[in-house]
């Protein structure tokens, strides 16, 4: 995975890098932890179980990390789902979830 890969992916690489004091190594290392992040599964499971509190916590945590790393394609659907979950909205989350997982998988493919 290179910075260019991430740029092509849609990440705001310059912003992410600046949060890492310009360290490419740190940035790539941190981005590399995202596909394996357990909170994606936690989000999916707790929604399936109807446990919106836990789902919100997972989404909120993911949102923070993704925003900090400026992984825009993944951050945007996570941001949206977080706002629905913050209001504990009972709705069909499957399309949002699908969008999230698709974006995650595209990131995984870069590894």
């Amino acid at each position: 995975m290179t910075l260019d890969d991430l740029r092509a992916y849609g990440a705001d690489v310059e912003l992410g890098l600046s949060r890492c004091m310009g360290s490419e190594e740190l940035y790539l290392m941190l981005v590399g932890t995202i596909p394996g992040e357990e909170k994606f599964a936690m989000l999916e499971t707790s929604i399936a179980e109807g446990n919106l509190d836990t789902a919100f916590e997972a989404a909120h945590a993911l949102k923070g990390i993704l925003a900090n790393l400026a992984l825009t394609p993944l951050h945007e659907p996570v941001y949206q789902i977080t706002e629905f979950l913050r209001a504990r909205t009972r709705m069909d989350y499957s399309s949002l979830l699908a969008e999230i997982f698709s974006a995650r998988d595209r990131l995984s493919a870069l590894l």
Binding site: R19, C20, M21, L26
Partner: peptide, 13 residues
């Protein structure tokens, strides 16, 4: 912070 990524970003800064 409970998130590894956040801790590392703050450490870096």
């Amino acid at each position: 912070d409970d998130e590894f990524v956040n801790r590392e970003l703050l450490r870096g800064a």
